[in-house]
Design a protein around this nucleic acid. Structure first.
Lengths: 236, 236, 236, 236
DNA sequence: CATGAATGAGGGTTCATTCAT
DNA sequence: AATGAATGAACCCTCATTCAT
């Protein structure tokens, strides 16, 4: 059914594969633009990025409160003061990382979905993109789904916005499909929420498996089929 | 389709309505068995129960780290020392409350599902029970889905077990139905995970609504339909 | 000339002598009224008072910035946490102590002056009161004149108000005397400032002497004569 | 009475007016003598001087502790490292600036007084010089009277020496006048202290006024009269 | 010479926990 | 049983100082 999709995620996969290294440079570098000697600045940016990577890992693993600045700086192998040279404080950094990470995830999903024209392809691309990120950059998913839950009260609204936007990504193609009577009549908002929650749960379980990468393909297929059934899709 | 279900949740609803008061006495009292004069023990149990109720509320609202012992004792209107008379420490209490709360939720779902014989009734009863708890005892759901996420590292395995058991509740009837070819062939494990995640997300969103109670019925219906479609149920 | 004054400061002296012990109970105890078992409260108040005494000493000796919470608690022989049980934070405590100390000093001067009817007696009583405090409770004077200078920006206005009120104490009798033509025509505001500054300087020097107590009498006399000459007092 | 004085401070006034710019080069340049190519040295000296000016301003405004090296270097528009090229450390610089500033003030007063032959002229010239500095170089006065109070314990003896020398400047002409019976018999030490303190207080209040410059003349006159009355001067 | 990234001791503050009353 | 004063480890953060470039 989704054979046509097989080719789709290749670039994403490769992209995500790079992510392990390059994600930070991609999602974390457009910070505070400032000029100085080019070399110095590049080095500084590189270090900031490295520290952010470390911070994402630590926050993802321990959650906001349990993660201490000491944890982060020792993960980044720098001194405490260095942290405060690059970032104003723990809360600001966390908020920033959460936002950037959410943007990265949402953008990736959005592009994956937007690039397809039929619902099955859209669902397949979206799920596959999500799974790819989870497998190759698990810290991203963990930060969003675990590390940021029950953290700062100030973050709660940010978290809700993330859920909202995530839901919207699914709801949009559903509305389009319902308009064209390709899926059953339904409250697409609730459906979209349910899809988002379903993906999260399955993917979090996937991450915890010893060899997530091998299971990924099956998970993608099962999730896609689950979703297409759940929305009652009946091809043209 | 689910008219027959209407009667089902009556008892649960009444039960849960009481929960606002009695949940703690119900789910929280089989603690550390010890004997003394009957009256004394009863009084003591009542106090412990009251403190646990307070603790659940506080933990659910603020999460493990942000909730302080002071928050809890002042919510329970006792002194700090009293806390340590009844409980060994913060972590132990939280772990215990999480376990008890999980048991309560799982038991309720399990019973709701077990009491029905067809998949639609089972799904309907399960979802309705979950929604009921969420609406009438939101702290329970919040503690399990929010307050306990990213909290203690020690809790992570407990959380996984909870997810496992929650998934199992859905998987069992699915396996039965698949055996009887009432649903499509599928990886029921993945399906069950997806259903659990879907319910969580939709219900968490429900709780955040201003008048959750009024929306509850629609949410139940949408979720049940979503699930039955997702498992590709085709009546006998 | 000031023989009549000889009797005056006796009570003050004795009072101030007690101050070494009782000043805290006098100037520092009308804090946050709250009730509990009488004994407990008394003990708590006593401890708070003791800690305030220690804090005054440390702040007076080292100044606001150089004084650390650790200095204060070790001077009071308690743990760090105890400090924060009694006081909200360093700045609040310092501000409070400064205010209370200023009130005590000003009130004492004001009463000394108000109790006399002729300018020489007023000047004599005022100076003697000031010197007494300086000799028997040097920390009070040091806190006001040294420890609080250049401390918190927030304190600067408080310090100015103190100087203002101190000046006013001198200016009032001068205005009265000028009205009755007992002193030369002059800008009493400037004169009062000058008197206040003169007293501070002489008294600070007195405190630094090895045996301030013995020198005190001479200082009082010299200061009184200085002031009476400076205002050009000519007896009835 | 003091008309003859009018001419006296002219040069000082003009000098002090320049001070706003040139004081640093005047009081701050005889540092650590070392030779190199003349031009280089000059440039270096200029930079050091500029940094010292900035430091005086910052220290005067914020006090020793609240002033950070970052404040100073950003006021001087250089990098942090540059600070440590010119000065060994914060404390040494402050101590040095305090000493230099004190020398400048004392020297100016001493010269003003030394240049007159009668007590009224001496007092007038001294007060006027002090007021001039306060008005045209307030940072100097503020550093000495505020920024250096309660700062470093190590500075305390230096501060006492400054007070000592300041007092001596007043005491010397008083002793001379007393020898010639031009003033009443008195403890000139105490009188000199009182005068010094009186001047400080009045002048500090002057600085805080919105337009100190306009008030300056009145302050000078009032202070001079105050002092001459206080020492009981009776013209030849 | 000048820079500014990097360091880490040390300061203020919080909060789980203990224990005398 | 109940209280709440007392404790101190550990947290976040600042800032004087160093040193490679």
């Amino acid at each position: 059914m989704f054979e046509a999709d097989r080719g789709i995620p290749r670039p994403l996969r490769r992209f995500c594969g790079q992510l392990t290294v390059s994600l930070p440079s991609i999602i974390l570098t457009r910070v505070m633009p400032y000029r100085s000697s080019d070399k110095t600045r590049q080095k500084k940016d590189a270090k900031r990025t490295a520290m952010m990577q470390a911070a994402v890992r630590v926050f993802a693993e321990k959650g906001y409160y349990a993660a201490t600045i000491r944890d982060i700086v020792s993960a980044a192998d720098v001194a405490i003061g260095t942290f405060y040279f690059y970032f104003p404080d723990k809360e600001t950094l966390f908020t920033y990382l959460y936002e950037e990470t959410a943007d990265f995830l949402l953008q990736t999903l959005r592009q994956a979905v937007a690039g397809r024209s039929t619902l099955p392809h859209q669902v397949s691309a979206g799920v596959r993109a999500y799974v790819n990120i989870a497998v190759f950059e698990p810290a991203v998913v963990q930060l969003l789904l675990v590390g940021g839950v029950g953290a700062l009260p100030a973050l709660e609204s940010q978290r809700l916005r993330f859920r909202e936007r995530l839901t919207a990504i699914w709801q949009k193609p559903l509305d389009a499909a319902m308009d064209r009577s390709l899926i059953a009549a339904q409250n697409t908002r609730h459906t979209a929420e349910a899809i988002a929650g379903a993906c999260d749960e399955v993917i979090l379980n996937l991450i915890n498996l010893p060899d997530a990468e091998r299971e990924a393909e099956a998970v993608v297929n099962d999730l896609v089929e689950f979703i297409l059934r759940a929305v009652a899709y009946h091809g043209s």
